[in-house]
Every structure is written in C-alpha cells, then in structure tokens.
Amino acid sequence: MEIDIKSLEPKQIYKLMTSIIVPRPIAWVSTVSRDGIYNLAPFSYFAGISSDPPLLLISVGSKETKEKKDTWQNIEDTGEFVVNIVTKDTLEKMNITALPFDKEVDEFEKAGLTPVPSSIVKAPRVKESPVNIECKRFEIIQIGKMGIILGEVLKVHVKEDILNEKGYVDTTKLEIIGRLGGANYCLVSKENTFELRRPDKR
C-alpha cells in the first residue's frame, strides 16, 4: 500500500507518523510562567540532537484556540525549562498532566507531584522522576503551528541507584516509558532489552 501524504489532513499525517516513528521517549517538561505558576506537560516529539554543544529538541504545538501551548509560551518568556523522565512509577501522573488545563492551573498540584528547586533554572524539577535535565532556551523555530524548541543542557540530576559502575545511567534500571501510536505505550525494562555489540571491521 502506498500512502500519498499530500492527500491527508494534518491530523491524519500526525497519526500516521506517530504510529511509525516508535518508540519515542517522552519529555515531561516543567516550566514556570512569568506569574510564577508551575506548568508540567509531556511531549513525545523529543530527541537529543548534539553533545557539543549539548542540545535537545522538543516539538510543542498550539492550543485549539491557536494560542501557543503554555510550555512554549513559558519557555519563550523565561528562557528556561526542565525535562523530566517518565517511568513506570510516574506513568499515571504523567497522563494527568497531558490534559489541557487552563494556564492558571498548577499541574504539579493536579497530578499530586512534588516540585523541587532546580540548581540553575527557575523551573522546578519533578521529585518523583529519577532523571531531571535543566535547560535554557537555545533557539525556538516556528514551523506552522509548531514550536521547535532547542534547549541547551545545563545540569543533569540522576538518582544514584540507577547509575552503573562507570557513572552512566543504567537504562535497564530506569523502567522508562516510551510512546507508541494512539494511546499505546511501551515499557523498557531489563527483561525486554538485549545487547548487540558492533562487529569488528574485516
């Protein structure tokens, strides 16, 4: 079957792409507004794109009213945000923060999560997440209704019990959640991962 992308509506294209580009890590982004209101929302168009400088990317859409989503607006206004990692233990609470709350609503409070101070940025970290990445805005590129946000990584907080002997994160201990198409997710755990080393050049 061949699918002509030009014959599809944007919503259909979104559903097709998100069912193919899987699994996707989830950036659970915490920000604070100019009025001091905490915001927390998940985004699965998310990737690390450079290590020198250390940059990551999240793609944030617009509201149905065509206004920028609170995450986008807050990053534009303050220049700061934190990416928190979603795990099996935080999945249900992450799902609550995906709801389209009004900008005056504190999603930490709604989801029963604990905001804790970051070291550098004003945006809070999610205490319940084992990994928090403090970022400052590097650049925002607007493409149609989407904001492509590049963030420079300033500091990473990692719970010690998920580190390996080399000081890196042992991903098999994270029980990290990945996004699939529609309402489907996947769990990365020790039982469903495997190791594959690169072959020697011959």
Score class of each variant (00 low, 15 high):
Lys190Arg: 14
Lys93Leu: 02
Met94Phe: 07
Lys88Glu: 15
Val188Tyr: 09
Tyr168Val: 11
Asp106Ala: 02
Gly79Thr: 01
Phe108Ile: 05
Tyr168Trp: 12
Val131Gly: 05
Thr31Arg: 01
Val83Cys: 00
Thr18His: 04
Asp106Ile: 02
Ile85Glu: 03
Leu174Gly: 09
Lys88Phe: 11
Ile58Phe: 04
Leu174Ser: 04
Gly147Pro: 10
Pro115Gln: 06
Ala41Thr: 14
Glu152Met: 07
Ile75Leu: 00
Glu165Asp: 14
Glu191Trp: 08
Pro42Asn: 02
Val22Thr: 15
Asp106Thr: 00
Gly79Asp: 01
Lys93Phe: 03
Pro54His: 07
Ala123Tyr: 05
Asn95His: 10
Gly36Ser: 09
Glu92Gly: 09
Thr97Val: 01
Pro117Cys: 06
Ser50Ile: 06
Arg24Ile: 06
Thr65Gly: 06
Val126Asp: 05
Gly151Gln: 01
Val82Asp: 03
Trp28Met: 01
Asn164Thr: 07
Gln12Arg: 09
Phe138Tyr: 15
Ile140Tyr: 02
Leu55Met: 02
Lys201Asp: 09
Tyr185Ala: 00
Arg24Lys: 05
Ile58Tyr: 02
Tyr38Gln: 10
Leu196Lys: 12
Ser33Pro: 13
Ile75Ala: 03
Glu191Asp: 15
Met17His: 08
Ile140Pro: 00
Asp35Tyr: 11
Glu134Gln: 08
Pro100Ala: 08
Leu57Ala: 08
Asn192Trp: 05
Ser44Pro: 12
Ile148Gln: 02
Pro124Leu: 01
Ile5Val: 15
Pro100Met: 05
Thr65Met: 04
Thr18Tyr: 06
Glu9Val: 10
Pro100Leu: 05
Ile37Met: 09
Lys155Thr: 11
Asp102Trp: 09
Ile143Tyr: 13
Thr18Met: 10
Glu2Gln: 12
Arg197Val: 12
Glu2Pro: 10
Ser7Cys: 06
Ile75Gln: 00
Gly79Gln: 02
Ile149Asn: 01
Thr172His: 06
Asp70Ala: 05
Lys88Gly: 13
Ser118Asp: 12
Glu67Asn: 14
Pro117Leu: 09
Phe101Cys: 04
Pro115Gly: 00
Pro42Met: 05
Phe194Tyr: 14
Ile149Tyr: 00
Lys159Phe: 08
Val86Gly: 01
Tyr168Arg: 12
Pro25Leu: 03
Val105Gln: 02
Ile75Lys: 00
Pro23Ala: 04
Gln142His: 07
Leu40Met: 04
Leu150Gln: 04
Ile21Val: 15
Glu152His: 06
Lys110Asn: 07
Val126Leu: 02
Thr78Cys: 07
Glu104Ile: 14
Arg34Met: 11
Phe138Thr: 01
Asn192Thr: 05
Val156Trp: 13
Met1Phe: 14
His157Leu: 09
Thr193Tyr: 12
Glu92Ala: 15
Lys69Glu: 02
Glu139Gln: 14
Glu191Thr: 08
Asp89Gln: 15
